[in-house]
Simulated scan of single mutants.
Amino acid sequence: MLTPSPYGWISQYFIGFFFAYGVYLPFWALWFEEQGVSPTDIGLLVGIGFATRCVANIVLTPRIHKVEHLMPALRWLSFAALLFVGFHFFAGGSFWLMALATVLFNLCCGPIVPLSDAMANYYSRLKLLDYGRTRLWGSIAFIAGSTVVGFMVAKFGTDMILYTALVGVLVGLIFSMRSINPMPVTTAEEHAERPKLTELLREIPVVKFLLLVALIQGSHAAYYSFSSIYWKGAGYSEDIIGYLWSLGVVAEVAIFALSKRLFAGWSLRAFFVVAAVGVIVRWGLTASTTMLLALVMIQLLHGVTFAIAHIGAIQYIQNSEPHKMVALQALYNAIPLGAFIALMTTLSGWGYEKWGANVFWAMAAMGVLALFIKVEPQSARGAKVMEPEPQN
Rank of each mutant, 00 (worst) to 15 (best):
Y230L: 13
I229W: 05
A234L: 11
W231H: 10
H220C: 10
S237E: 13
Y224A: 09
I229L: 15
R261E: 11
A264C: 06
A234K: 15
R261S: 11
L247D: 05
G265Q: 04
S237Q: 14
V213T: 15
S228P: 10
L210I: 14
S237I: 06
L215H: 03
S225C: 08
L244M: 15
G248V: 13
L212Q: 13
S259R: 04
F226W: 10
A257S: 05
S219V: 12
V253N: 04
L211A: 14
Y236S: 07
A254W: 09
S219T: 11
W231G: 04
F226V: 12
Y224M: 07
F226T: 09
I216H: 08
Y224K: 08
L247C: 06
S246I: 10
H220G: 07
Y243S: 14
D239Y: 06
A264P: 00
F271D: 00
S267N: 03
S237R: 11
L268V: 11
V250P: 04
V213P: 03
K260L: 06
Y223A: 10
S227I: 11
S228I: 06
L258Q: 02
L258P: 01
Y224C: 09
I241R: 01
S237D: 14
K232G: 08
E238L: 07
Y236K: 04
G265N: 05
V250A: 15
A257H: 03
V213H: 02
Y236R: 06
R269E: 10
G242W: 08
Y230V: 04
S237P: 08
W231R: 00
